[in-house]
């Protein structure tokens, strides 16, 4: 039992095991040099530095307990990018383990049948039994679920227009299904994060939060540019512009990041109005107001636009091209393209 829970601490059964063990997390985090806390910090730091969750602790119980503690730490750091990166790392590690456990499960020696990891068990865990059904050559995934599970996968082979969609189902191989399940795991890990942490526990975890914040580097982003050239805009900003032009009311964060970007590259409010071309005075007013808000009276930018990672978190990172692979901030993209056009 413990072994499976330690390997998949986000399973409902693992959570029940923690509850059943009646471990008081509030008390646990007060213990000096508590290995579960150290391992929890390692989980989060490894997620940020190399997109894994680090080496598992040799003791399954400590390994299992480190997961709920890591969730507390992530909640305390309270940064959407950290939450997303952490969830991705947990999911990536789980995916590797699933592959190993399904293919080489013999050496794991689970004691009872109901703890053996099978694809069916995974589907049941994520409530997907009705939407994913086995076929002769693999599985069929209900198209609406497929779209959600495949949304973050970059390879063009995952694109719906290239899939053999028939009667509402997308056929996938077993390996493809396991990759899709990675998204389900990521959602499970991210669900409920961040949550409110009682002050008493937060105080005990100051050092853990500091350790995570230490690795959150703040890469220098360019803020001064020679030219205003919309042709050098990154694809994410192009896409937001296009949506604004089509009359869509963008979510606040997307709207803000677009105006902030335009202002930072040196556009004045009226230039932004002209490029969005809203055809509606209310929207034009909203643009002027927004641009004024992001820029100070001296023309400096009080709120610079967000990084690529944050754009990804908000689902605004779209149509990535080759330049995108080399930069981590939309403004770096702009700087790179400006230099290339010179």
């Amino acid at each position: 039992m413990e072994r499976l829970h330690a390997r998949y601490p986000f399973f409902a059964a693992a959570r029940e095991a923690v509850d059943a063990a009646a471990v008081d997390l509030g008390e646990l985090v007060t213990r000096p040099d508590e290995p579960a806390v150290d391992r929890a910090v390692d989980r989060v730091v490894s997620a940020l530095t190399d997109h894994t969750i680090g080496e598992p602790h040799g003791d399954d119980r400590i390994e299992l307990l480190s997961y709920p503690v890591a969730r507390v730490v992530v909640s305390l750091v309270d940064d959407p990018v950290v939450t997303r990166t952490y969830a991705k790392a947990e999911a990536a590690t789980a995916h590797e383990r699933v592959l190993a456990d399904l293919d080489g499960g013999d050496d794991l020696k689970f004691t009872t049948n109901d703890t053996d990891l099978t694809v069916e068990r995974l589907l049941a865990e994520f409530d997907l039994e009705d939407e994913v059904v086995p076929t002769e050559d693999g599985y069929e995934v209900a198209v609406t679920r497929y779209l959600q599970l495949a949304a973050d996968l970059d390879d063009p082979d995952w694109r719906l227009p290239r899939r053999s969609l028939a009667a509402g189902d997308v056929p996938v191989t077993r390996d493809e299904l396991l990759e899709l399940l990675r998204a389900a795991i990521e959602e499970r890990v991210a669900a409920g994060l961040p949550f409110a942490v009682p002050d008493a526990i937060a105080a005990e975890l100051d050092h853990a939060v500091a350790a995570v914040e230490d690795v959150l580097s703040d890469p220098a982003i360019p803020t001064e540019f020679a030219d205003v050239d919309p042709a050098a805009f990154p694809p994410c900003m192009d896409a937001l512009l296009e949506r604004a032009r089509a009359g869509e009311e963008l979510p606040d964060h997307s709207w803000f990041v677009l105006l902030s970007f335009c202002a930072t590259v040196g556009m004045h409010a009226e230039e932004v109005v002209a490029i969005v071309d809203p055809g509606d005075e209310t929207v034009a007013e909203r643009i002027r107001y927004g641009v004024e808000r992001v820029a100070t009276s001296e023309g400096e930018i009080a709120y610079p636009p967000v990084s690529c990672a944050t754009m990804q978190t908000y689902g605004d990172c779209v149509n990535k091209d080759e330049t995108c692979e080399t930069i981590a901030h939309p403004l770096s993209y702009y700087e790179t393209r400006l230099a290339a056009d010179d």
């Binding site: 609406t144 779209l147 949304a151 719906l160 227009p161 969609l165 689902g315």
Partner: peptide, 20 residues
């Protein structure tokens, strides 16, 4: 119901046979 804009975009692309 729960599909977000990026999911709906894939449906658009399918219907228009974009990127295929």
């Amino acid at each position: 119901d729960e599909l977000d804009r990026s999911h709906r975009r894939e449906i658009v692309d399918y219907v228009m046979a974009n990127d295929v």
